Amino acid sequence: MSVTIFHNPACGTSRNTLALIRHAGIEPAVVEYLKTPPSVEELRTLLAEMGMTVRELLRKKGTPYEELGLDDPKWSDEQLLELIQQHPVLMNRPVVRTPLGTKLCRPSSEAVLELLPGGPLLPFKKEDGEVIRDTGARRASAA
């Protein structure tokens, strides 16, 4: 199964999501998007696959969101996409793409489970010690 994660290794949710994918026996393609930002076209594709707006993908905390005044409705979607490409820290994470769909796996890393094959997985312990118990519920096909 082809799995890609847009990953920030400094983010606990992103690390837990990556570990959970690996716990499922899958070695994903890891895109450290702060080092290799997605193109504007790739961002458009991800948003379409997730059924999200650009504003829903924006991360506010720990980014130049406030400094750039991105809450102002004057910014068009195209301008916001360009800004995410220029300042990839503005992209919320982690985003995971599998043949079952694409999803922003936030605020909780277990959101990735519905995108993974098979299931249920054995219990998984997150970095903070919380145990994730997989119900086996999966998407039937890409949304």
Rank of each mutant, 00 (worst) to 15 (best):
C105W: 02
E67L: 04
P73N: 09
G101N: 07
L58A: 07
P123W: 05
S76T: 15
P99G: 13
P99C: 10
P117R: 12
L115Y: 02
T63A: 10
L81H: 02
G62R: 03
L80A: 05
G62D: 10
T63V: 03
E82F: 01
G119D: 05
E110L: 02
E56S: 15
L115R: 11
R106C: 08
T98Y: 00
M52A: 10
P73A: 13
L100C: 08
D72W: 01
T53N: 08
G51Y: 06
T102E: 08
P120T: 00
A111L: 14
L121Q: 02
P73R: 05
D77A: 11
D71Y: 07
E56T: 11
E56G: 15
G119A: 06
C105R: 04
P123N: 14
P120H: 00
L121G: 02
K60Y: 01
M52H: 13
E56K: 15
R106D: 01
S76G: 07
S76H: 09
E67I: 01
E66S: 12
L90C: 06
E114D: 05
K61I: 06
K74G: 15
S109K: 02
M52P: 07
R93S: 14
Q79T: 07
T63W: 04
L68I: 04
T53Q: 13
G51D: 10
V96Q: 14
Y65V: 13
M52Q: 13
V89D: 09
Q79K: 12
N92F: 01
E67T: 12
P64Q: 05
S76F: 02
W75H: 14
T98A: 14
W75G: 09
L104V: 11
V112P: 00
K103R: 14
M91D: 03
L80F: 01
D77E: 14
P99T: 08
T63P: 06
M91Q: 14
L83D: 08
T53K: 14
K74R: 15
E114C: 02
L115F: 03
L115N: 12
L115G: 12
H87L: 02
L58T: 09
S109I: 03
L57Q: 10
D77M: 06
W75P: 02
R106L: 04
E110D: 15
K60H: 13
V54N: 03
L116P: 14
V54C: 04
L113Q: 04
S108L: 08
L113R: 06
K61M: 10
L80Q: 04
L58W: 08
L122T: 11
I84S: 04
E56F: 12
P88M: 00
V54Y: 04
Q85P: 01
L80R: 08
S109G: 05
N92Y: 02
L90N: 07
R97V: 15
G51C: 04
Y65L: 13
T63N: 05
D77F: 05
T63E: 14
K61F: 01
K60T: 15
R106T: 11
